[in-house]
Amino acid sequence: MNSLGLALAIVGAACAALFAGIGSAKGVGLVGEAAAGVVSVDPNKFSKVLILQLLPGTQGLYGLLTAILLLSRIGVIGGNAAALTVSQGIMFLAASLPIAIVGLFSGIAQGRAAAAGVGIVAKKPEHSSKGVIMAAMVETYAILALLISILLIYNISI
């Protein structure tokens, strides 16, 4: 039963990295497409669109961070895995869900917002910072989810 608890916690770490990573990949990919469209017409705008393309990439990093913290907390990274009960395993799995789910959707949503911001860079490059700000607003929710996931991970007693 102990190994099931550990397995559930590892599934949680995998979910955090996996779903947040998917969200970022989709978001970065979408902005990349839009950015490539602009750069194909005006290569001088590369640096401005690159900033927008980087924005949806953070969710993947938050997922990775959560996964590493979780694996570290349960001793997997140190090579001394804790013997977790099923309920502890479920708690760790639940702790990873905020960043996993919010990371997935916010990554996609931020990608859409940033791709729309690429349109601002294309037409009015002097207002490109507004596009960055609008896309960055989505980031708030990914940060909140990351915060909750970390708080949960560090407050589950082993």
């Binding site: 979408l30 902005v31 497409e33 839009a34 950015a35 490539a36 469209g37 602009v38 194909s40 017409v41 005006d42 705008k45 859409r112 791709a115 690429v118 349109g119 294309a122 037409k123």
Partner: peptide
């Protein structure tokens, strides 16, 4: 509609001309 992200961005760049 997001399939057109690249095309729309390119067109927006062209609109400035």
């Amino acid at each position: 509609s997001t399939e057109y992200a690249s095309a729309v961005a390119a067109v927006k760049a062209m609109e400035s001309s």
